[in-house]
Computed example of a mutant assay.
Amino acid sequence: MKNELDPTKILHAYETIIEHGTPTEHGKIYEGVEAFSDYDGYSIYLRGNGVELKVGFHNTYHLEYDQEHLKETFLKKVAMLAK
């Protein structure tokens, strides 16, 4: 996968969700996107609408999704949250 995501924007979206979201079992949810981190804080996760994005050490990331249109919708929402 080519590097199509900006880690800085992902982190901004994560911070927005944590700041404005409501608590869930794993983290917080805002505008339909849930944000949480692993126990040591090295990896953060954003998920919603059948898509999960994991951002790890050195800004590596992995996107899991079943359908391309779900991925595109999710990434648009993440971009909106990053503003």
Rank of each mutant, 00 (worst) to 15 (best):
P23C: 08
H26F: 05
N59Q: 04
Y42L: 15
K76L: 07
E68I: 05
H20N: 15
D38R: 02
K28N: 12
N3C: 09
H20C: 12
E25M: 12
Y61S: 12
E52T: 15
K28T: 03
Y42K: 09
A13H: 03
A35R: 03
N3H: 10
K76F: 02
N49W: 10
E31Y: 09
H62L: 13
Y39P: 04
D40A: 11
V33C: 01
G21T: 03
R47Y: 00
P7M: 01
D66L: 15
D40G: 00
Y14A: 02
N59I: 00
G50E: 01
G27S: 10
H69A: 08
H69P: 04
Y42S: 13
S37C: 05
L75P: 02
H58M: 15
T73V: 15
L75G: 08
D66I: 14
L63V: 11
K28M: 13
I18T: 00
D66C: 13
L5N: 07
L70N: 03
K83W: 00
K9W: 00
E68V: 05
A79S: 12
K83A: 14
N3G: 09
H69S: 06
E52M: 14
F74Q: 05
T24Q: 11
F36T: 06
L5W: 00
K2E: 06
I17G: 02
E64V: 13
L63Y: 06
K77Y: 01
G56D: 06
Q67E: 10
N59M: 03
V55L: 15
I10L: 01
I18V: 07
Y65F: 15
E68C: 03
E4N: 09
K76W: 04
T73I: 15
H20T: 00
D38S: 10
A79T: 07
Y30C: 06
H62W: 02
M80W: 12
D66T: 14
K54G: 06
E64L: 11
T60S: 15
Y65M: 04
H20A: 13
E64W: 05
I17F: 04
E19L: 13
E19C: 09
Y45H: 13
L70Y: 05
G21K: 04
I17W: 02
E72V: 15
H69F: 14
T24E: 11
H58G: 02
D38A: 08
E15P: 06
T8V: 14
K54F: 00
F57W: 10
G56C: 04
K2S: 07
H69T: 06
E15R: 14
A13E: 00
I29M: 08
A79E: 11
D6W: 10
K2T: 01
Y30F: 14
D40S: 07
I18S: 04
Y14H: 03
D38G: 07
Y61G: 13
L70R: 07
N3I: 15
Y39Q: 09
T24M: 12
T73E: 01
K54A: 08
E15N: 15
P23V: 09
T16N: 07
G21C: 08
A13R: 02
I44K: 13
D38T: 10
D6T: 12
V78K: 08
L75D: 03
D38L: 09
F57T: 07
K83H: 11
E34V: 10
T16P: 07
E68Y: 04
N59W: 01
T8L: 10
